[in-house]
Simulated assay, not measured.
Amino acid sequence: MKKLVEIRNQEFVCRERAMRDSERRIFWLAQAKEWEQRALDEIAFHFRECNLESAEAQTSTS
């Protein structure tokens, strides 16, 4: 989950820059959106891994 925290931090930094850099606001918001998607992908990956481990554990105990 440390990776997710780092990704969300990057998203936050981009959103902060968007607020401070009016000339490149659209660029920074687009960057933030990319980081947001990476975070969602990381969450989905984590849940897939947890579900796989859970299924394997159930199979080995049955």
Results as ranks from 00 to 15, higher is better:
41 D>E: 15
40 L>Y: 15
17 R>I: 05
60 S>A: 07
62 S>I: 02
32 A>Q: 02
25 R>H: 02
32 A>S: 06
35 W>Y: 15
19 M>T: 03
31 Q>K: 15
2 K>Y: 03
23 E>M: 12
57 A>F: 03
34 E>D: 11
40 L>D: 15
10 Q>V: 04
33 K>T: 06
60 S>K: 13
17 R>L: 13
35 W>M: 14
9 N>L: 09
56 E>A: 10
49 E>F: 08
4 L>W: 04
14 C>N: 05
39 A>L: 09
9 N>I: 00
39 A>D: 04
21 D>A: 03
8 R>F: 11
44 A>M: 11
37 Q>G: 02
17 R>G: 02
16 E>C: 10
18 A>W: 00
57 A>H: 02
21 D>Q: 05
23 E>A: 10
35 W>N: 10
44 A>H: 12
55 A>S: 09
55 A>C: 05
19 M>R: 01
20 R>G: 05
20 R>C: 07
58 Q>M: 03
37 Q>N: 13
50 C>W: 08
2 K>P: 15
14 C>W: 05
12 F>E: 03
60 S>L: 08
17 R>N: 13
4 L>G: 10
34 E>K: 15
54 S>Y: 08
49 E>R: 12
31 Q>C: 14
33 K>P: 00
18 A>D: 02
24 R>Y: 09
52 L>N: 02
27 F>E: 04
34 E>N: 14
35 W>F: 15
43 I>R: 14
8 R>A: 09
16 E>N: 07
1 M>F: 06
56 E>W: 01
4 L>F: 08
8 R>P: 00
58 Q>H: 04
36 E>N: 13
32 A>H: 03
62 S>M: 05
52 L>W: 00
61 T>F: 09
6 E>M: 09
12 F>N: 06
62 S>E: 14
33 K>Y: 12
51 N>H: 14
43 I>Y: 12
15 R>Q: 07
27 F>Y: 12
35 W>T: 07
39 A>C: 07
29 L>E: 08
11 E>G: 05
7 I>V: 11
6 E>K: 07
59 T>E: 11
48 R>D: 05
8 R>K: 11
29 L>T: 01
32 A>I: 00
56 E>K: 07
39 A>H: 09
12 F>M: 03
46 H>N: 06
14 C>E: 08
59 T>R: 10
4 L>Y: 10
10 Q>M: 10
